[in-house]
Structures are given as C-alpha cells and as structure tokens.
C-alpha cells in the first residue's frame, strides 16, 4: 500500500488557496470576502502541516499553523466588527458601496 506523498497535500493546499483568492476577488458581500480569506489561510495551513510531516523541521510547521489559526480567528473578529459598523452606516454589506474614499 503506497502512502500519499507531500505532493497530494500541496495540491489540496493550492486548490484551497486559489478558491479563496477567487472568492475574495469576486464576492461583493463583505462576509463572503472574509470566507475567502479563511480559505486562503487554510490552504497555507495545509502546506505548513504537510511540510512539518515530510520535512526535517520537526513541529515548526504545526506551530506556525497554530498561530495562523489563532490570528485568523482574531482577524475574523475584527473584520466582522468592521462589517457591522459598515452595515450600521450604509445599511448594506456590499463592499462595492464602500467608495467614499475614491477621489
């Protein structure tokens, strides 16, 4: 029985990353953009953990991914607070409507 090499995990990470980027680029809903960010970070996490298993770096990769998870949660909390504030001011969370700072 042959095991899965590091390539498989890296490919999954790449798919997650690209999906996240597309999501960030196309969604007009502020919370949808946030979900894209989560996907991107998650794709990076898969790479970290895969290299931690297959590389010589010990648990470094796993600890890095722990920090990523924690910081992503913090980022989501702040971004959600901003989204709520935006909704309070504009009654929508369509990010295309946030154009007051355009010259």
């Amino acid at each position: 029985m042959e095991g899965v090499g590091v390539q498989g995990y890296l490919a999954v990470g790449a798919v997650l990353f690209v999906c996240g980027v597309i999501c960030m680029a196309t969604k007009r809903n502020g919370i949808g953009v946030l979900m894209g960010v989560e996907l991107v970070l998650n794709g990076a996490n898969v790479n970290f953990v895969a290299f931690s298993k297959f590389g010589p770096l010990g648990l470094d990769g796993q600890i890095a991914s722990l920090f990523v998870i924690v910081l992503a949660a913090a980022e989501a909390a702040v971004a959600l607070a901003i989204a709520l504030n935006f909704y309070n001011n504009h009654l929508t969370i369509d990010v295309d409507r946030a154009n007051e700072l355009q010259g």
């Binding site: 899965v4 996490n45 991914s65």
Partner: peptide, 13 residues
C-alpha cells in the same frame, strides 16, 4: 482539512 491534519499526525492542530 481538519481530517487531513489528523492524517498528517497533527492531532492538536
């Protein structure tokens, strides 16, 4: 993805 982490023997992550 959490399942993948378990497969990579990263149970805490």
């Amino acid at each position: 993805t959490a399942g993948l982490f378990f497969m990579l023997s990263a149970d805490f992550v």
